[in-house]
Design a protein around this nucleic acid. Structure first.
Length: 423
DNA sequence: TCTGGGGTCCTAGGACCC
DNA sequence: TCTGGGGTCCTAGGACCC
């Protein structure tokens, strides 16, 4: 049976999550900042209307935000992750074909047959999410994922459609594409936009009609697929089962520049430990570990240094002490004194599932090791991250990120449960 | 003073092999 | 001065996404 795609997209997701627990923020300009309170990563419609751009460094708009009474929040990923799960639960209850695409977006696969009212159906999905979770969503429908994305933009931007728009067979496709900038097409970023503009291609309709060989040549197969999708030929299937991860990264910008090797060691130990926890949560083991560090990209070139080092392991592992010791070896050879480090991280790759690994004659997995890791994960998951941590990590963490505007973990921590006062 | 974090896919080019 | 051809594998870097 022929299918169409629907894209369900949470509106201003992080802001909507915050508003759920602080209704006083409704109707107010609100922004949510990235880790370390660095950049603006979510904006309410009121904040967008004030002209605050996505990704703007916060220090540049701090004064403006104060003058305009913009509510400023640090990001609270525990809260957003929990609410995202609830939205996805509603979708799974209603539909068999669901691809969770990101924290705030999912694709659905719906029958393409005429004779049923798709729009009413997705309006019902939208209403149920609003009622059961409280998050507003927009839903776009199209014959391909790329067109569903574009339909979703229309649903979100044009109030008259009330959050749902169907581009699958309504004869308006080309008119909508003509009003869609090429930079607003899914998969066309800054570089591709520049290339296309130089060739005189400015909107999605012009891209749809672009010369295939030229696109293939300058935008690789990625661009060629986008053009096909704009033409209604589906190249990107619905992926119901998430493919298993190929790499796991834990990295942070520091709250203040770090110069001492000891502090870097402390940060790297923490990153390696957290990456190892993520690894075990997904029942994986890593075959390689990469450590990287960098000074501020925006500083003077003479004062800048960035480097990374990878070690490949003879045997894949998820053992925290082992991963820490390898990470510290890397750090030791990467470290140069005299620089003000701004960021570091640990990446695990060569991931294989726990059962997959061949047992080594010389390095048998000891059961004690695995059960120690399991016990540690249980305690930290129950009592909070870092309840038990490795002895080498210091208690003072000058590198830790700033979070001056943090909201509470309303749904994931007993201490932060909202209190309702009846009078 | 202050500029996120975590991912994926694709390609070109080098190393290596026969 | 001349200096094979074809294949695979790996990695670094670029581009994109949310």
């Amino acid at each position: 049976m022929k299918k169409v795609f629907a894209l369900v997209d949470c509106n201003n997701f992080y802001v909507s999550c915050e508003r759920l627990f602080r209704p006083a923020l409704n109707g107010q300009p609100v922004v949510v900042l990235s880790n370390n309170d660095g950049c603006v990563i979510a904006r309410s419609n009121e904040a967008k209307a004030l002209g605050i751009p996505m990704g703007e460094p916060f220090f540049k708009i701090r004064a403006f935000a104060r003058r305009q009474n913009v509510h400023v929040l640090s990001s609270n990923y525990a809260l957003y992750g929990d609410l995202s799960g609830r939205v996805m639960d509603v979708l799974h209850q209603m539909e068999a074909g669901v691809e969770v695409y990101s924290i705030d977006e999912a694709f659905l696969s719906l029958p393409a047959a005429r004779g049923w009212d798709r729009l009413s159906y997705v309006a019902e999905i939208r209403e149920r999410i609003r009622k059961h979770v409280g998050i507003p969503v927009s839903i776009g429908i199209g014959p391909t994922k790329t067109l569903a994305k574009i339909a979703g933009r229309v649903a979100k931007k044009e109030g008259r459609y009330q959050g749902v728009f169907d581009l699958a067979d309504n004869g308006q496709v080309d008119a909508v594409l003509q009003q869609t900038g090429v930079n607003d097409v899914w998969g066309i970023g800054r570089r591709f936009t520049e290339k296309l503009n130089r060739r005189g291609i400015r909107n999605a309709f012009e891209l749809k009609q672009a010369n295939e060989a030229w696109v293939r040549n300058h935008l690789t197969v990625v661009g060629a697929r986008i053009v096909m999708e704009l033409n209604g030929i589906s190249c990107l299937p619905l992926e119901k089962i998430p493919s298993s991860k190929k790499s796991i990264v834990t990295s942070r910008s520091f709250g203040q520049p770090v110069t001492a090797l000891d502090d870097l060691r402390d940060a790297v130990i923490t990153f390696a430990s957290r990456a190892a926890v993520k690894l075990r949560e997904q029942m994986l083991e890593a075959g390689a570990l990469h450590v990287f560090l960098a000074t501020n990209d925006f500083g003077a070139p003479a004062a800048s240094y960035a480097n990374g080092q990878t070690v490949t392991m003879a045997h894949s592992t998820s053992n925290t002490p082992l991963l820490i010791s390898m990470a510290l070896q890397c750090l030791k050879s990467l470290y140069r004194p005299g620089y003000r480090y701004q960021k570091a991280g640990v990446m695990l790759s060569g991931l294989v599932s726990q059962g997959y690994r061949q047992q080594s004659l010389f390095f048998p997995t000891t059961e004690e090791n695995r059960s120690l890791m399991t016990a540690l994960d249980r305690i930290n998951s129950k009592w909070g991250q870092d309840t038990i941590q490795y002895g080498m990590t210091g208690m003072q963490k000058p590198w830790e990120a700033r979070q001056s505007h943090r909201s509470q973990a309303y749904t994931t921590d007993w201490h932060d449960l909202p209190v309702v006062n009846a009078s």
